[in-house]
Amino acid sequence: MNEEQFEVKVMDYLADVMTVDERAAFETILKSDETYNQKYKALLKSWNSMQNMNAPEPSESMDEAFYGMLDLALEKTKLKQRPNRLFDGLRTILKPQWALGVVLLALGVAIGYWINTEDTPDSVVLTESSNEAQEIRQKLVLTLLEQPSANQRLQGVSEANKIGSADEIVIKALLQTLNHDANVNVRLAAIESLTHYVDQPKVRQGLVQAIPNQESPILQITLANLMVALQEKSSIEPFRQLLKEKQLDTTVQKKIRTSIESII
């Protein structure tokens, strides 16, 4: 065995990666050759002292700095993706179902206009046709929110944003989406849409009630931010309940704790 072969073998022996046979063969060499045995013993001391080397635990500020950096990166990515979403939306509009929806909407407006033109003052005609358009849009929202494709449900939420003042049914549908939709992006969009109606007590109450139903950290953090902005005291209890969950993400835990403090 030359010097380099010994160096390789002794490292395998120290790192305990040899098979039983290899180990036995190497031990025989160590017993029969005093020079190698001395070299091995000297090396063993350094190896053991290296293995005993310790490091302290990193502080919590390392975690804070990392997650701060990650949040920033996530926000930047979201901002970059916005124009793409617009194009995605346009592409969806070009789909046949959408073409049909647009035709139906136009038809509804036209029929409404035709029926009400005679003996009706201009302002009333305008109001009624816009009401009808609103109604059709609301129906469209409800239909889209029930579609199996997440993309279409997202489109449904985005249609809901275009409604000036959504009625109770649409708000209920949005809250249901927030609580039960399988897709995190759709739920997130539902929160965004519902923020237009936070002046309604039912919406605020619905948002608070949705807190325990969220498992995604993004949704939990978004709701925490919203509750802080609204200073919604009734959200404290659901957040406290959420904190008791063992599997809650550590960043979310910190975020919720600071949110509770800000609301109190």
């Binding site: 490091a55 302290p56 990193p58 502080s59 390392m62 975690d63 990650l70 950290p217």
Partner: peptide
């Protein structure tokens, strides 16, 4: 990008130990 958080949690201690044992302050 969220998945980077998982990788961070898995490797932060040994990375920290690597730098610390190289002689850097905590």
């Amino acid at each position: 990008l969220d998945k980077l958080g998982l990788l961070y949690e898995r490797h932060k201690k040994r990375l920290f130990g690597f730098f610390y044992n190289l002689g850097n302050a905590p």
